[in-house]
Design a protein around this nucleic acid. Structure first.
Length: 113
RNA sequence: GUAAUAGAAAGAACAAUCGCCCUAUUUUUAGGGAGGAAAGUCCGAACUUCCAUUCCGAAAGGAAUAAACAGGUAGCGGGUAAUUCCCGUCAUUCGCGCAAGCGAAAGAGAUGCGAACAGAAACGCUCUAAUUCGAAAGAUGAAGAGCAUCCCUUUGGGAUGAACUCUUAGGGAAACCUUUGAGAUGAAACGGCUAAACUCUUACCCGGAAGCAAGAACAAAUCUUCUUAUAAAGAAGAAAAAAGUAGUUCGCUAGAGGUAUUAAGCAAUUAAUAUCCCAGAUAGAUGAUUGUUUAGAAACAGAAUUCGGCUUACUAAUCUAUUACUAUU
RNA sequence: GGAUGUGUGGCGGAAUUGGCAGACGCGUACGUUUCAGGUGCGUAUGAAGUAAUUCAUAUGGGUUCGACUCCCAUCACAUCCA
């Protein structure tokens, strides 16, 4: 789980990111980004029922993504709001695979220090 | 040994590193952190608000649920806060199964028992022998006057019993069971099916509806008024009252609670005593990596107001009782 | 989280005091009209089987002589509640 200051929580924040943010696409997820110039970067995750109908599987996917981001949290540039929208193809993938993909996309769009 | 039926128990533990939620202490430590189904939302209860009625009160408000309507339950007896649940009895009848066993049924009324096909005839009260009689036999169908046992010289004939009504005695907590005697009937006394969509009756239960996204408290904004400045729109500021949105807090987890012992009871369960505190989030915690143990760590699956049931999903290896068949002694 | 509703051919959609399932429209195929196409008209159109027949109203049970309809369980989809 991420520290409290790095979590995106409010519904309005999510809506802002959706309406004004930029989109990047990966094999496993969409990434929406918005520059806010605040002290910390905040990150949210969305796993819809399209991914799986079972709550256990959705929780599992969410936790794997959180873990992948948590391990790199120090390297992410401050002052951004990020939202990961997880796609169906991520099912039954390992942590290392997800972590690799997340790092690749963040690096590609210049969000890593 | 194989197959089956009924039931019981289990649903990993420990350690290290990096993280998250809650509580306490206080500023870094300690303790706790998903399930047997957390699921389906099929029953039921607590709790909250609204509605109805009654009572108390000057009012504000508080308390209660009697009756009626509507609704629910249904072998019988017991348990529970309550139930479509649980326990006992397996009491009667019916259906399924070789069997162990499993499933269904409160009682009555009126109404109805279609079309097609088969059949002589669809509620039945018939037909088949030259005629009459025959509770035999046969035919059609989902359904048609029948059932059981026994005997004989078998186009068939005969005996006894139950079934129906009344009645005697005994057993049982009761449903009911066993039992004594008499009568009726021989083709018409009488009887079958039909509510899991109707109506009524009996006994018992229950005010009705909606649900924690229930609801309660605080409360920016907005609106109103005033002041300042202004040609006006508007802007800025302040204030009392109203308002109840965004948001925050409560509801929220100590409970019809768990564990142990004793007592009552066949049991479900109840009572007493001791002891324990065991998730409480709100973009929503309980995760990641590695090692050890073990035959194995797989399957179904994630708390969201709480609790009691039912139902469904599922894993590997077990245990107990019973039934059928087979083999051996 | 809580509360409701729906499910019938390839598609939409009829049929309910329980009594002939698949009306009707669209689509598809074939024929016909035309120089050709379209339109129009006609026929066929759930599955298995040579046929008789059997199975089919989301799935599985039950009640009933008889179930799309009544009852129970399961599955899928949709709607509402801050």
């Amino acid at each position: 789980m991420l520290p409290l200051k790095n979590r995106l929580k409010k519904k309005k924040d999510f809506e802002n990111v959706f309406t004004e943010g930029k989109t990047a696409k990966s094999r496993y997820f969409f990434l929406k980004t918005l520059k806010t110039n605040s002290i910390d970067s905040r990150i949210g995750f969305i796993v819809s029922k399209k991914v799986s109908k079972k709550a256990v599987e959705r929780n599992r996917v969410k936790r794997l993504f959180r873990e992948a981001v948590r391990l790199d949290i120090a390297r992410i540039k401050p002052g951004y709001d990020l939202v990961f929208i997880v796609l169906n193809s991520v099912k039954e993938k390992e942590l290392t695979e997800i972590k690799k993909e997340v790092e690749f996309i963040l690096g590609k769009y210049g969000l890593l220090i």
